[in-house]
């Protein structure tokens, strides 16, 4: 576990080599006649946190949906450890170690917190008790509320549940779609701290965010999407310093 964490700290700033954990190669995705992704290239290496930024409608969620098999790309490839997985349905793709926390949390409203977590482990014969303990340690709030129905949780609690549920599937790669959406700054901070912890424990993270400054502080690298194309790709620290990023996503005057 600590080995993975060490690995992660090391290459900041340097070129990554070897086979990425996830690679999107010239990916084109359409909704009917609308081209939502126009041939994007994204790489996520083992141990990294990669941020995916962009305005509303840029194609961030679409990118995650294509990566987790919810959408089939019309052209291009999705590779996990160098093997093509595009065309594999999402329910089969979870076995490859992908956990997707969808936009808007989407907890099961009429299941309890505990049942929601157990659903996250559906791909296993039975839920791993240790994993559940780990989730409860990361999110003590969920433990307190384990018998409460998902639909009656607060927004922040639902987000924690959605992340915990994905962790129950023991993903190698966690895809997160705007985990800070609609949450108070204090809760956002908490969630980002926990994401950091999850990453340090060895899970690779691809993070979609509107909250660019928080995301880039956590991330090793980042991509900026604009209308279905990668407009920028760089180290997180460079993006954070880039005047264009600051103007467009950090709310600073140009």
């Amino acid at each position: 576990m600590s080995g993975a964490a060490d690995l992660k700290k090391e290459p900041a700033g340097s070129e990554r080599t070897g086979t990425p954990l996830l690679e999107l190669r010239d990916l084109r995705v359409y909704y009917g006649a609308i081209e939502a992704l126009k041939g994007i290239n994204v790489k996520v290496y083992e141990g990294e946190v990669v941020a995916l930024l962009g305005a509303n409608g840029a194609g961030k969620s679409t990118t995650l949906r294509a990566a987790s098999g919810m959408l089939a790309p019309r052209e291009g490839q999705v590779l996990l450890h160098g093997e093509r997985v595009d065309g594999i349905k999402s329910h089969d793709l979870v076995r490859f170690g992908i956990g997707h926390v969808p936009e808007g949390r989407r907890v099961f409203p009429r299941m309890t917190v505990k049942e929601n977590l157990e659903m996250g482990a559906y791909r296993f014969k039975s839920p791993d008790r240790e994993e559940m303990d780990r989730v409860y340690t990361l999110f003590p709030r969920l433990k307190e509320r384990r018998t409460q129905l998902g639909g009656t949780l607060s927004g922040g609690e639902q987000q924690m549940l959605a992340i915990g549920r994905a962790l129950m599937g023991k993903p190698e790669l966690l895809l997160l779609d705007e985990p800070s959406m609609g949450l108070a700054p204090l809760i956002v901070r908490q969630i980002f701290d926990i994401l950091k912890e999850i990453n340090e424990q060895g899970t690779t993270v691809l993070l979609v965010e509107q909250n660019a400054s928080q995301a880039l502080q956590l991330a090793d690298r980042g991509y900026v999407l604009e209308t279905g194309e990668v407009a920028m790709a760089d180290e997180a620290s460079s993006l954070l310093a880039d005047p264009r990023v600051r103007a467009a996503y950090l709310g600073e005057g140009a």
Binding site: M70, K89, R106, M111, M119, G169
Partner: peptide, 24 residues
Amino acid sequence: TKLGSGIRAVAQDPEVASLMGVNI
């Protein structure tokens, strides 16, 4: 049962159910 959880999950959110590994 597990089939039962699958049924309830699909009833509540089929898309997310399939993200959990449920074959709809």
